[in-house]
Design a binder for these strands. Structure first.
Lengths: 215, 215
DNA sequence: AATGAAAGTGGACCAGAGTCCGTTTGACGT
DNA sequence: ACGTCAAACGGACTCTGGTCCACTTTCATT
C-alpha cells in the first residue's frame, strides 16, 4: 500500500497555500520544524492508508515519524487538524476545479449547471475521502466554521445569486450544503447502500427545485 | 438551578415508552436496576443543568448518583446514550405533537402546512435542547440511524407524498432534515448569530421550493 | 425460608487525546 | 567561531470514555 491520497506526483502537502482566504503573515518555519512536519504527514498518510483514518492514533503517527507526541500536537493542533492537513492537497485540487477549472464545473457555464456540477464534483470528492472528512470533523460544532466550508458556501451562494434566485440565499446555501455533508453522504452510501447515481440524481433534483424560476 | 428539561411535573423520564417503533419484548428491570437508573437520570439532569451537557463527565454523574461508573455504562451504553435518555421525555412530547397533536402541526391541515409547522416545531424544540442533542451525537456516523431520526424521516416523507411531491422523496427528506440538523442550527444561531425568525423563515422558503407544484 | 442462577454492581484498569515543562536546537547578530 | 534566545522538541502526565470481572443482590421456585 502507498500514500493515502492516491495521487502520485507530490508525495505530501506543503505548509499550505490556500486557494481562497488565509493571509499567512507568518515567518517561515525553522528547518527542524519543516522536516518534522513532512515526516509526520508522510507517516500519517501511510498509516491512514494502511489502517483507515479511524484507526490511527496520534501516538502511532508520532512513533512512525520518530518524533515526540508533543510535536504532533504542536504542528497540527489536534487530531482533526492532522486529518485536515492530509486532505489539504486534494482539497485544493477540488477547489481549483470548481473555481477556475473548465466548464461546466468552472466558469463559463450557466450558474444552474455549474451548481449541479459542483454537487456532483463534491460527491465524487467525498467518495474518495469520506473517512478523512469524518475523522476531521470530530469537533462537534466547528464542523461549520472551517475555511473549506466557507469556500464552498461562498461559491454556492454566488452561483445561486447568478442563477437569479431570490430569497435568503445564505440559508438556501446552508440547506444545499447540508445535502453534501460527509456524515450524511456516508450514511446514504454506506448504511443505506444507495448507489452513487441515485445520490447524484437527488442533488440535481434538489438544485432544480431550489433554483427553479418564479422565485 | 433545577432539573434540566425545564418541565415541572414528571421529574425524570421512565424506562421509555417510544411513540413509534421499538418492540420492547424485554422483561421488567430488577428493583435495584430501576432505582439506579432513576438516581442516575436525576443526577445527570441536575449536573447538565448546572454545567452544561458538554461539561459533565460520566464519572461525575456516577459519583453524584452514588453509583459505580460501570453501572452508568451498563444502564446507558455510553455517553451519547445517557444524553439521549435525558432527552427522551421531551422528545416524546415533541413527537406526539406532530404525530397526533392539533393542526396545523398534527393531522388535519394540508400536508404542506404541516411540513412548515413541523420544521418550526423542530427548530423551537432544538432551541431548548441543542446542547443535549450535540452531546448525544458524539458518534460520528450513527447520527443518522437513531430511532428519533427515523421517526422524523418517516413523517416528512409521508407529508411530502401527501403534498403530491414527485421524485425521490427519500432523498428530499434527507435534504430537508439536513436543514434541521442540531449542529447546523446551533452554528446558525450561536456562531452566525442569526435570529430564530430568520432561520424559521428559511425553512418555510425551503419547503415552498421543494413542495412547489409542477413536480 | 432456603436456594441457585441470572442480573446487577463497582471500582480497578486500559487506551487514546491533549497538556506541561525542562531540555535542545537552529537562526542570527557580532 | 561564538553567544543568545525564541522556537521547537519529546516524553511524562492528566483527564475521560469505556471495558472487565470478581463479587453481591434480586427473585422465581421449591
Amino acid at each position: 500500500m502507498s500514500q493515502y491520497p492516491p495521487a502520485q506526483g507530490t508525495p505530501v502537502p506543503e505548509p499550505s497555500v490556500r486557494v481562497l482566504p488565509v493571509v499567512d503573515g507568518a515567518q517561515p518555519e525553522r528547518a527542524d520544524a519543516a522536516r518534522n512536519r513532512a515526516r509526520l504527514l508522510e507517516a500519517a498518510s501511510r498509516l491512514v492508508a494502511e489502517h483507515g483514518a479511524g484507526h490511527v492514533t496520534m501516538e502511532a503517527v508520532a512513533a512512525a515519524a520518530s518524533v515526540g507526541k508533543g510535536t504532533v500536537f504542536r504542528r497540527f493542533g489536534d487530531r482533526a487538524g492532522l486529518m485536515r492537513a492530509l486532505l489539504d492537497h486534494a482539497e485544493q485540487e477540488y477547489q481549483k476545479a470548481f473555481l477556475f477549472g473548465p466548464a461546466p464545473l468552472g466558469p463559463g457555464a450557466p450558474a444552474a449547471e455549474r451548481l449541479e456540477a459542483f454537487g456532483i464534483a463534491t460527491l465524487r470528492h467525498l467518495e474518495t475521502y469520506v473517512d478523512l472528512y469524518l475523522a476531521s470533523e470530530r469537533c462537534p460544532t466547528r464542523r461549520y466554521s472551517f475555511p473549506a466550508r466557507a469556500v464552498q458556501a461562498t461559491h454556492v451562494a454566488a452561483l445561486l445569486r447568478q442563477a437569479g434566485v431570490t430569497g435568503d440565499v445564505e440559508l438556501l446555501t446552508q440547506a444545499l450544503l447540508g445535502y453534501l455533508d460527509a456524515g450524511l453522504v456516508n450514511h446514504l452510501r454506506t448504511v443505506r447502500r444507495l448507489p452513487a447515481e441515485r445520490v447524484e440524481a437527488g442533488w440535481k433534483d434538489l438544485v432544480a427545485r431550489v433554483v427553479r424560476e418564479g422565485h
